[in-house]
Amino acid sequence: MNHHTFLRLIDPVKDKMYRLALRLLISKEAAEDATQEVILKIWNRKNKVKDYANIEAFMISVTKNYCLDQLKSKRNNNLRITHTNYDNNELGVDRRLELKDELVQIQRIVERLPDQQKIIFQLRDVEEYEFIEIAEITKMNEPAIRVALSRARKKIKEELLKTHNYGI
């Protein structure tokens, strides 16, 4: 496989990989680096890639694992500081203004979900994968995926209800 063929193979998947990386790593910069790094990783193992029945699922799966590793090493080093920021419940004026934009607010809610729920929300509600595909990517079984997804969806709604007075 030469690199033109490889790039053509990766082209329809690379945005999905990037979006998952962005969901997990939040920083645009870090997500771009991660996507590039994962693509290189797959390129270096390109002879094995052919053996996978579902190449797309394999690529997304490698991205997921890579990002989780990144997060793990980050948390061990210096993520304490950002965590205390999140725990701060008193919102500053600028923060409150920002929250007026509802989509930004949902973004924040999703950011605070556990990693596993983030991944499943991203794969199902954004990328619209079938449960079988998600099972292949996450190595979880289908009922567990449904439970995590249900929790994520309920949590988003709950958080939105907390900050808004919707007439429900």
């Binding site: 945005d15 771009e32 996507t35």
Partner: peptide
């Protein structure tokens, strides 16, 4: 959302 940075191998 799309990846804006071009990828290289």
């Amino acid at each position: 959302i799309q990846l804006e940075r071009p990828v290289t191998v």
